[in-house]
Design a protein around this nucleic acid. Structure first.
Length: 427
DNA sequence: TCTGGGGTCCTAGGACCC
DNA sequence: TCTGGGGTCCTAGGACCC
């Protein structure tokens, strides 16, 4: 049984990845944009200090960007993903057990003998990750994951902490002192809506929350709030879902670079997203039985009426064979397509996902049953070619070639670590 | 004109059953 | 046609996370 949890969190992760390959960006305001160059999703401390909020649309912060010479990058997820796996591998050198929580964050259960060992350990983790990858991380340590996340907030906020903050040696009374300084909305698991609700009940800080009775908390926040409260009281109850467990639903969707009006272009996009989703499905050795397709116009337009629609279909036999999904997907698309709409986004969702080896054959579709083996071979071949020669080396005709609907990605840096032709050059 | 993508978990309410 | 409690299962939608 672990007595403590550490949470290791990369600082301003996407920005730090860009900085790792371009030291000229140090001490400068830098932001990384979301897909389609839409919003700021990662900000350097200097950019935060300028008042650029998380998720701010680029067009709304243009003036700030120009005035202060903020460096702006498109997202380079291939680079970030690769840096992430390097960091996770480094963590594995420090612990047999690593819970991968997100691309830039992991929990590690710990049980050392004395409280001061935790901070020494964390210090070593920090310097090693910096040495191996160039990415700065913050580490919070506490008896529960929720408190570890809180400790991490302090590690980031207070420079004197040097990136590490631990509740390990503190009593609940001492911990409470810190919880008084943590706004309730900054507690892990309490978002904007819940924080607003709690404020109407005069609950403003994490400390206020634990001073409130369990029954009252249950009234406002239901079971999740009760668990969060317990975690703040050092009672561990957030069971961690299994590491790298297979996904229960797989979503692939993108906003278009420009509005799309033609059915043909939507068909290409949907086929292309299905391709992506099925590839993920095969990668985790699963099959799916349900396919959802959706299309929509812009949420934000003041001049056009909103149109969005979706449709879901059950396949006769669960599958992971791309052409089958494309066939059904395009059928559904035709039914929900409405002419005259300027579409901003489309997406597909695979659900009722089960392990590949449990495919339930269809009682009456003997022909379908017989094809399962053949399709598997075709899929294997396609995936093998892509693994070797890259994603775009081979594709489905239905997904198109020119893809004029594709999103903007104008300021992307090279994929330094995953493409031989894009290696960093030193002069 | 320009506003991301990909997940998880929980709840309320409806359909259905006896 | 009305009366009633008690249960399961499914789905849509909301809240949250990064």
């Amino acid at each position: 049984m672990p007595t403590m949890f550490a949470v290791v969190d990369c600082n301003n992760f996407f920005v730090s990845c860009e900085r790792a390959f371009n030291p000229g960006l140090e001490n400068k305001p830098v932001i990384v944009l979301s897909n389609n160059d839409g919003c700021a999703v990662s900000r350097s401390n200097e950019a935060k200090a300028l008042g650029i909020p998380m998720g701010a649309p680029l067009f709304k912060i243009r003036d700030l960007v120009q005035e202060h010479g903020v460096r702006v990058f498109s997202s380079n997820f291939e680079l970030y993903g690769d840096m992430s796996s390097r960091i996770m591998k480094t963590l594995e050198e420090f612990s047999p057990e690593v819970e991968y929580y997100s691309v830039d964050e992991a929990f590690i259960p710990l049980s050392f003998y004395s409280a001061d060992q935790y901070e020494t350990w964390a210090e070593k983790v920090r310097t090693t990750i910096m040495q191996y990858t160039g990415i700065p991380v913050s580490i919070g340590i506490a008896p529960t994951r929720t408190l570890a996340k809180a400790a991490n907030e302090f590690a980031k906020k207070w420079e004197i902490c040097n990136g590490v903050f631990s509740f390990a040696a503190l009593s609940q009374t001492q911990i409470n002192y810190y919880l008084q300084q943590l706004p309730v909305g900054d507690v892990w698991g309490i978002g904007y809506t819940s924080a607003r609700t709690l404020q109407t009940a005069n609950i403003y800080t994490a400390y206020d929350l634990i001073q409130t009775s369990e029954l009252t908390v249950r009234k406002y926040l239901k079971i999740m709030g009760v668990r969060t409260r317990a975690e703040l009281l050092c009672i561990s109850c957030a069971a961690f879902s299994e590491n790298r467990a297979p996904k229960k639903g797989i979503l692939s969707s993108r906003s278009f670079g420009q509005r799309v009006t033609e059915l043909h272009d939507l068909e290409e996009a949907v086929a292309s997203y299905i391709d992506t989703a099925c590839h993920k499905l095969r990668k985790q050795h699963s099959v799916a039985r349900f396919l959802t397709v959706y299309i929509r116009s812009s949420y934000y337009s003041k001049t056009e009426p909103y149109y969005g629609n979706s449709m879901t279909m059950a396949l006769p036999i669960a599958s992971n064979y791309t052409p089958t999904f494309i066939q059904y997907g395009l059928q559904m698309l035709k039914k929900i397509f409405k002419p005259g709409v300027r579409y901003a986004k489309a997406g597909v969702f695979l659900s009722e996902i089960t392990p590949q080896h449990t495919i339930q054959q269809h009682l009456f579709l003997q022909k379908e049953n017989n094809q399962i083996g053949v399709r598997q071979s075709i899929s294997d071949a396609v995936d093998a070619v892509r693994n070797r020669y890259g994603r775009s080396s081979i594709g489905f005709a239905a997904a198109g070639i020119h893809k004029k609907w594709q999103g903007k990605n104008e300021q992307r840096t090279p994929r330094y670590t995953t493409h031989l032709t894009e290696l960093l050059t030193a002069y």
